[in-house]
């Protein structure tokens, strides 16, 4: 039974990803950008153009092209990026850890601040605390990220000099860090290079806080709503009748119930972060996945776009699976008997 469930899970994963790739593939082919021209330039002769087109396999029917691509993916080969001239796998291996590091930084802030904020806003609903929390959430929602990013850079980097500017780490350390996980905060700590760690930290703090702010705004708002729903339920009255304190009711009774849908919200928020926050990565020159996919898209570098999309897709599916695995721990009703 276990083996069957596992097999079913893998099959779903494969089908989901194949579908995702197919759609991205087709969109890439019907885009009005000619990938051949992107490689050979628009002054190339007819023969050069035709030869390049044949080399890239673009003269074959679309399903043959797709078949070839899938075949490559199965072997772990995502093709060659036409803009960087390197295997897409290598490009992504460099870009993804940057995004992952930023995303983890942001989601940790989002959870550590957003959850308590949402719980207390629900507890003190319609008081100044609740209104302030809601205003903060709304502000996070309605302000363009690039504007907030630029303002943050202007104040904390340019004016006050408290943080470092764009990039992941100071140029002095860029080539001295021993890569291990690709997450610079961890790698610098691991090699005990305190100065490099400080540099990496002062680079990640602004974009990290900014993205953390967006994710905490979302998490706090949803947590508040789910908590209010739980606090209106009968079992909360029951706990009061037993003599439980409001703090106990909040954290021991209502919160564990609200956590079930909140976990989905957190996973969703993390998924969006992993997609790569294109604007944030652009403003802070953060060499992450979002920036990579966007750049590739503008130069019609389809192997790179497809590779990036595949990674994002895998992340989403895995996150989904992970929440599914967490549910039974939170909600006994979803436990298999």
């Amino acid at each position: 039974m276990k083996a069957f469930a596992f097999l079913r899970g893998v099959t779903t994963l494969v089908i989901t990803l194949a579908g995702l790739l197919f759609i991205t593939f087709v969109i890439g082919r019907v885009m009005p950008i000619d990938p051949v021209v992107a490689v050979v330039g628009d002054k190339a002769s007819q023969e050069t153009y035709a030869r390049a087109r044949e080399e890239m396999g673009l003269d074959k029917p679309i399903w043959v092209q797709f078949g070839r691509y899938i075949e490559g993916v199965a072997r772990g080969d995502l093709g060659q990026s036409s803009s960087s001239g390197q295997p897409v796998v290598e490009d992504i291996a460099r870009a993804f850890p940057a995004t992952l590091e930023l995303s983890v930084f942001a989601i940790v802030i989002g959870v550590l601040v957003g959850l308590p904020l949402g719980v207390y806003a629900a507890h003190r609903r319609n008081t100044w605390f609740d209104h302030a929390a809601r205003f903060m959430s709304l502000f996070g929602y309605s302000t363009p990220v690039f504007w907030l990013g630029l303002i943050a850079l202007l104040i904390f980097y340019a004016q006050l000099g408290w943080t470092s500017g764009p990039g992941r780490i100071g140029t002095a350390y860029r080539y001295t860090v021993q890569e291990w996980s690709g997450l610079l905060l961890i790698d610098t700590l691991r090699s005990g290079d305190w100065n490099a760690f400080r540099s990496a930290f002062s680079h990640i703090i602004l974009p990290g806080l900014l993205l953390g702010y967006f994710s905490l705004a979302y998490i706090a708002r949803m947590t508040r709503n789910f908590m209010i729903e739980e606090l209106n339920k009968e079992y909360v009255t029951m706990a009061r009748i037993k003599g439980a304190s409001e703090t106990r009711i909040l954290w021991r009774h209502a919160f564990p119930n609200a956590l079930v849908p909140v976990v989905t919200v957190i996973a969703l928020s993390f998924g969006h972060l992993l997609e790569g926050a294109v604007l944030t990565e652009t403003v802070f020159a953060w060499p992450g996945l979002g920036l990579y996919i966007t750049k590739s898209l503008f130069s019609a570098d389809m192997p790179a776009v497809l590779g990036g999309t595949l990674v994002v897709g895998v992340c989403f599916v895995l996150l989904n699976k992970a929440t599914e695995l967490i549910y039974p721990f939170l909600d006994p009703r979803t436990r298999a008997r």
Binding site: E234, Y235, I241, V260, D331
Partner: peptide
């Protein structure tokens, strides 16, 4: 003692 144990018992406890 309240009306309906379906609602008055905490489902995750």
């Amino acid at each position: 003692i309240m009306q309906d144990p379906k609602f008055s018992l905490n489902p995750v406890m």
